[in-house]
Design a binder for these strands. Structure first.
Lengths: 99, 99
DNA sequence: AAGGTATATCGACTTTTCCCGATATGCCTA
DNA sequence: TAGGCATATCGGGAAAAGTCGATATACCTT
């Protein structure tokens, strides 16, 4: 992953919010409860909370995934997203030793 | 400092390079030796190493300063820039607890 | 005071990002 | 297999960032 792309992914208020919300899915996405949180939170839930359009949120999630900050699981017609803590570990490492 | 602005400042290859070079000014800016490194490295040295124009580098340094990642000292007609480690500490904190 | 040097700011152009609506894809169910 | 959802992708208009050359500012020297 390119460092610049990683920081670009973080350079947007909505994307930062999404990452933060996904730290506590139970708290921030209560409507997801009936489907469980094991796979993450589905796009529609995230979209509602952001107030952005579906296409924008889908694209933002792709951006975060390309940056390695989230990972996705497709289950049926839903795509669940959750944080990818390995990506955050890499981010920390970049900041500690490469910047 | 706004988080988004902080990450935007980091979303550019040249600015990342500058920050990295400033970790070891003696190694990366040997021509600065005759003026010392106590106040940092002056804009002209940084400009030469980047290969960008003077105006671009001056603006980039302002961007980094607004983000809190470098600090400047004006001495005569020179402006010396150096890393601001407090800014990096804040960056770490943001990543640890706010993202 | 005049000229020279280092840096900052301005104006402009190009490229990228933001965010949308429309459409396509994939999957599920009747 | 048709229709209905959930998500992804496409195309585009507006705003922001990247980068330059030209000009302004500040300071230093003579």
């Amino acid at each position: 992953m390119d460092q610049v792309e990683l920081f670009k992914a973080l350079s947007n208020k909505s994307r930062l919010q999404i990452l933060n919300w996904l730290k506590e899915p139970e708290t921030n996405f209560p409507d997801q409860a009936e489907y469980g949180y094991a796979n993450g939170v589905c796009v529609g839930q995230i979209q509602m909370k952001t107030g952005l359009t579906q296409s924008t949120v889908s694209e933002y999630l792709s951006t975060l995934q390309r940056a390695g900050l989230v990972k996705s699981n497709r289950v049926g017609q839903w795509t669940y997203y959750q944080r990818n803590e390995e990506g955050f570990a890499l981010l920390n490492q970049i900041i500690q030793s490469e910047i």
